[in-house]
Simulated scan of single mutants.
Amino acid sequence: MEQHPRSPDDRDRHIPNREKLDSGEIDLTGSVPQPGALADVIFDAVSEAGGDGEKIPDWGARVIARELANRIPVPGTLHHYAVTGTVDHVGLARELEIHANFGDPQTKELADLLGLYLIKQPAGRPGHQSDGATPVERGLREHGAPFWAFLQLKNIDTDSDELVQRFADFHIGSFASLSEILDTLTEIKGFKAAIKEVAERWGFEDYIVLDRERLARTVLATWDVVEFNGKFHVFMR
């Protein structure tokens, strides 16, 4: 049978026949561009979970991973998870941190949602999961989100049997904002009160404003701070 050339307006003309998908089918390998379909499935997954990352369905988590993996130029841990379902907590935590730090607000939201889902998942690939006894899994089970943030720090031995204890030694606390960190971990409150007293006495209280951006930089220079799911998790250096 004679085959006519494809129309130049055919959106699938560059896609090999074996890679064509049926309507509604999602390609988790990233071979077929599907930005609209991925967005629709992610919306369905987040809606089904009520916006709670821990309740994201399994199929939704892998589609989120596919969407995020598509945003970086080389295959990594997110790509591997999207394709195989294999959970590598450390690799995924660190790759998601890159998206959260350098992506737009939507990217950060997706990274946080996927992170919350992965905290509850066993390591390994489907059907061959870990027994949950690794230090990483014990830490996630016992400490949840703060431990996930801890995994994103550099220069920690995630294979060490002392990993959970090191977390306990280094984790200072989790805070709602950088301002709360300043108020809790420094003497800024007393400093502000003293300035206010002097300013009111001399009548120039309207002329003194603290440089909060500089103070925030001081916080980041003093401690390791990881922002995850609306919290700032603080660790000793």
Score class of each variant (00 low, 15 high):
residue 98 I to V: 11
residue 11 R to E: 11
residue 201 R to P: 02
residue 112 D to W: 08
residue 237 R to H: 10
residue 38 L to V: 12
residue 120 K to W: 00
residue 51 G to S: 04
residue 34 Q to C: 00
residue 119 I to W: 02
residue 224 D to M: 01
residue 32 V to H: 03
residue 220 L to W: 05
residue 68 L to W: 04
residue 1 M to W: 12
residue 42 I to P: 03
residue 88 D to P: 05
residue 40 D to H: 12
residue 190 G to S: 00
residue 170 F to N: 07
residue 220 L to H: 06
residue 131 D to M: 09
residue 24 G to Y: 01
residue 129 Q to D: 05
residue 8 P to R: 12
residue 171 H to I: 11
residue 134 T to G: 08
residue 218 T to S: 12
residue 157 D to G: 02
residue 49 A to S: 15
residue 15 I to P: 09
residue 174 S to E: 01
residue 129 Q to V: 12
residue 203 G to S: 11
residue 111 A to G: 02
residue 135 P to T: 00
residue 186 T to E: 08
residue 7 S to G: 13
residue 114 L to C: 06
residue 207 Y to C: 10
residue 169 D to T: 07
residue 171 H to W: 07
residue 79 H to A: 04
residue 7 S to F: 06
residue 15 I to L: 09
residue 186 T to C: 10
residue 139 G to D: 10
residue 48 E to P: 07
residue 147 F to S: 02
residue 140 L to P: 04
residue 237 R to D: 15
residue 1 M to I: 03
residue 207 Y to H: 12
residue 67 E to N: 07
residue 92 L to E: 05
residue 65 A to T: 08
residue 18 R to T: 13
residue 10 D to I: 11
residue 116 L to N: 00
residue 188 I to V: 09
residue 93 A to W: 10
residue 171 H to K: 04
residue 40 D to R: 14
residue 64 I to A: 03
residue 89 H to R: 07
residue 45 A to F: 08
residue 142 E to C: 03
residue 44 D to F: 02
residue 139 G to Q: 02
residue 194 A to I: 12
residue 155 N to D: 15
residue 71 R to I: 00
